[in-house]
């Protein structure tokens, strides 16, 4: 299998920057102009939580950040829902789904209002409490510089970092939105008789397996359905969590969410990864325990 030529090869090398001169100039500009004065370039007042690396990578594909946007939703869960029962805890699953959906709608709306084409780097924070399930999303709205590129496409919301967004963009993929699914279940009980019989034997507990398996699959399936609804081809960077509730150990929750993507046009474009061998021994990274081979 031949390795495609690396991206960037054959382009003229960028001119070396005289960093010291730049710093002198920067300081002068700031010291000279009145607070809030205009700079030489057009003044677009942007708010962004992207790092400079992300911003540079975004610019390399012709996009820029414009605004910090967020969306929050809290849905109530009635009392007694977490008491021991059987099967799925529907109120909880519904509350999670609705909170996620409403929060996404709101951040979507803020993005549109700010003139963005999509939101990247969304921090997804969700919490399941005894009586309510909260979802909070915060990210940076972005758009193509000078309004080029996608115009008729719907606004997307994604937890992809600016860097991952640019990588996928170069490969021909675009994000569509965040898909999420959750399922909360009661742990099945073993009847007294079965419990006694099983003690001392190493056996599979089929009831339990079935219940947990089903719940896990259910959460993933809901996420998939949501993705299909956005007409996506795939979901990447799926994050799966599972575990008992802090406040109710016999109730177990499964959640899955990820970014829905699809090919913009035609086929996937190979990125041509180059292999590198860094000659670094990073001083900060050195750790004596690594000598033990652990």
């Amino acid at each position: 299998m031949t390795v495609p030529a690396p991206v960037g090869e054959g382009l003229p090398a960028p001119e070396p920057v005289d960093l010291k001169a730049e710093m002198i100039r920067a300081t002068e500009v700031v010291g000279r102009s009145a607070p809030g004065g205009k700079g030489p370039a057009k003044a677009t007042r942007m708010l962004s939580d992207l790092s400079i690396d992300e911003e540079l990578v975004l610019h390399s594909i012709g996009w820029e950040p414009i605004e910090l946007v967020s969306g929050v939703s809290i849905h109530s869960v009635p009392m007694y829902v977490w008491n021991w029962g059987q099967g799925e805890i529907e109120y909880a699953s519904a509350a999670y789904a609705r909170s996620f959906a409403r929060a996404t709608e709101r951040i979507h709306a803020e993005c549109t209002k700010a003139g963005g084409r999509g939101v990247v780097g969304v921090h997804v924070e969700w919490g399941v409490h005894r009586h309510h399930i909260d979802v909070a999303l915060v990210g940076t709205a972005v758009r193509p510089v000078d309004g080029n590129g996608l115009s008729a496409d719907p606004v997307f919301v994604s937890d992809l970092s600016g860097r991952d967004f640019a990588l996928l963009h170069n490969a021909g993929w675009e994000p569509l939105g965040l898909a999420a699914g959750a399922s909360f279940v009661y742990a099945p009980r073993r009847s007294m008789g079965t419990a006694v019989k099983q003690k001392g034997q190493n056996v599979e507990l089929t009831n339990f397996t079935e219940a947990m398996y089903a719940a896990r699959e259910s959460a993933m399936e809901r996420m998939q359905t949501s993705a299909l609804g956005m007409e996506g081809t795939g979901v990447v960077e799926v994050k799966v969590t599972e575990g008992p509730m802090d406040f109710a150990h016999h109730a177990v929750g499964f959640t899955a969410y990820g970014t829905v993507v699809r090919l913009r046009t035609g086929e996937h474009r190979h990125v041509g990864a180059r292999m590198i061998l860094p000659l670094d021994d990073p001083v900060l990274g050195f750790d004596a325990t690594s000598l033990r081979g652990s």
């Binding site: 993933m220 998939q224 081809t233 795939g234 979901v235 990447v236």
Partner: peptide, 15 residues
């Protein structure tokens, strides 16, 4: 529809 918990880096390398 495909789903994957691979990071974007891993996804691109698999391709």
């Amino acid at each position: 529809l495909f789903t994957s918990d691979l990071s974007v880096n891993e996804f691109l390398l698999i391709k």
